[in-house]
Each structure stands twice: as structure tokens, then as C-alpha cells.
Design a protein around this nucleic acid. Structure first.
Lengths: 159, 159
DNA sequence: GCAAATTGTAATGATATATAACAATCGCCG
DNA sequence: CGGCGATTGTTATATATCATTACAATTTGC
């Protein structure tokens, strides 16, 4: 459906810094700082994946499928932090575009295993490259040491 | 409406690390790391504001209103990164609980100025204290120096 | 075998938020 | 002064995401 982008002002959700507005000590709040950074990162992601209809959850699903061939939809949902039904819709979406497929499982008649197709693998490789490049571009404001330090701190924070 | 919280497994959206799942190099992606950290932070925020129906955008709106008395709804929307209609609903919500009020503007017959009420100021003071305390608690995994370094890097990243 | 739990699925609902349309008002420019 | 475009607040509508609930098929444990 492609985002319209006909809007004039700052892109929705961008939390732009507006001139003349006093933001008080908002920057001291971890949550606010994280949100702002995440939005900036999301914009970089969008630029990287322009054209394709890839969202962060879809990208994550591709990565996890690639690293865990035959994973069940329930486990995929847990890994993504969504309800089973959410994993379902993701799987449907991937399947419809021929990026993944469901295969019957021998050991369990209820469950289906999810597998990336060759097309899915190819797309993922391409996406990873683009995302990494844009990540680097986007994080160019940081020195390399700062970049890795940030990743370390975020991981530590997320526990 | 208060979240149901009847769910059994990991809280939706938590992106829990699931045993036996291979996450590949997901942790190297800034966007993923940010999201995970933000979710953890959001949970801390929810704990801090349990009882009240305060969401991060509402909290941000309170802070901005406090620092910018008489701000217009359009500017508030820009500062929050939402469409005007979103700022509208936020203002409605705040007004309904007596936390803010709209006052006519002398200089512009179309625009309304937004002001925190005394009740709003009081609530904000209380919230700030709680949020700050939980932020610290939540960020306890980081050393104080790391905490401030993280804030600095995030701000630098968000530009 | 049979009850309970699990899996995938479908239908529904909630929520947040963007988009579009509209009236009132302002500001500019002739 | 008059009119036209832009802006503000507002409302209604659409959309996207995601949880919740219910259900059939199947597995597992007793």
C-alpha cells in the first residue's frame, strides 16, 4: 500500500524538534531518548527498504526463519513477542509473496514448519546488506567506537 | 480500559529471548537493539505509572504543556510528531480529566491556547518523580557513567 | 482410551493514528 | 475595503497493527 508521503510537514511520528518549543528535561528520560532514536532508526530502515513492503517485524521474521528452519509458528510468535495470531499473519504474508513456505511436520500432525524459500533467502541477503549500509550511514553521527558502545549498552539495558 | 493482563506467556510485545532460538546477528542491528531496549523501558514506565492511565505520549504532552503554556494544538502536534488530529484527541483527553484547559486567544480567533491546570501540574510533578525513580531502577544494570553515556549517544543519534 | 493441553486457524474487537473534508478565521494583495 | 489562499480546530473515516476469543484437529499424559 506504500505510505502516501503527500504530507507537507515533518513525517508523522518523527517527533521533530520544533523551534521555539521548550522540551524541558525530556531528554533526560530514557524512554523519550530511546523513542526518538528508534524513530530516527526506523526512518533509516524505511529508506533502506524503500520499494519493498518490509517492516521491522517482517525483517526480524525473515532473519529468525533463516536461522531456525522449520520453526513452528508458535515459537516464532514468542520470539517476535507477538501472539500466535500475529505470527500467523506474518507467515501468511511471507507465504503469499513466496518468501516462505509451510511444510508438514512428521513428528506433529498439528504443527507446520516454516522455511524460507530460495527467494526469501535471496531477499534477506539483499535486505541485510541494505539495512546494514543504512544503519552505518544513519549512525555516522557516532564514531565507530561509540556505535559499538551504544549497541553494548542497549543490549545490557534490554537484559 | 486498563490492559487485561490475563495472558499467560510473555507480555505481548516483549520480544522475549526464547531458549533454543537462533537470533543470528539481529543484535548487531541498531533498530532491533533500540526496539528491545525501548520495550524494556516502556515496561518500566508502565510500572511507574500503574493505576493512572498515562501513556508515554500523554506524559510527553504534559511536559511540553508545562514548559510551553498557551501552546497551540498544531504546534503541540508537531512537537509530538503526530498529526493535528492526534494532538486534538490528546488535548481532549487531558481536558476531560481536568489536567489541562483550552483558553481563547486574543491574537487569533481560530486558535486556542493550551494550559495545564493546577491539577495537571501536580500530577506532572508526581509523575516525573515516579518516572525518574523507575528509570533509575530500570537502568540499574548500567553504571551511572554508562547511563549518562547512553543518553548522550541516543541524543547524538537522534540528531 | 480419555481428558487436558497444544497447534494452527479464523473471526472479532480494541487501539492508535493518519487522512480527508469542512467551517471559522486570519493575512495578504490588489 | 474585498476577496482569496492559508491556517486552526474539529469531525468523520479509513487503515494498520495486534490482542482476544473460540474452535477443530492432534498430541500427550494418565
Amino acid at each position: 500500500m506504500k505510505r502516501a508521503s503527500t504530507s507537507r510537514g515533518p513525517r508523522p511520528g518523527s517527533i521533530a524538534r520544533v523551534d521555539g518549543v521548550n522540551y524541558a528535561d525530556l531528554g533526560q528520560h530514557l524512554g523519550y531518548a530511546l523513542k526518538r532514536a528508534q524513530i530516527a532508526s526506523f526512518e533509516a530502515f524505511s529508506r533502506a527498504t524503500a520499494g519493498e513492503q518490509i517492516t521491522p517485524p517482517r525483517f526480524t521474521a525473515l532473519v529468525i526463519l533463516s536461522g531456525n528452519p522449520g520453526i513452528s509458528q508458535t515459537v516464532l510468535g514468542e520470539a517476535l513477542g507477538t501472539a500466535r495470531s500475529g505470527a500467523m499473519m506474518l507467515a501468511d504474508w511471507l507465504e503469499q509473496r513466496g518468501l516462505a513456505e509451510r511444510r508438514h511436520r512428521d513428528d506433529d500432525g498439528r504443527a507446520w514448519g516454516l522455511f524460507l524459500t530460495a527467494k526469501g533467502e535471496t531477499l534477506l541477503r539483499d535486505l541485510k546488506r541494505k539495512v546494514k549500509r543504512h544503519d552505518k550511514l544513519f549512525a555516522a553521527r557516532l564514531k565507530p567506537a561509540e556505535h559499538s558502545e551504544l549497541l553494548r549498552l542497549l543490549a545490557k539495558l534490554a537484559g
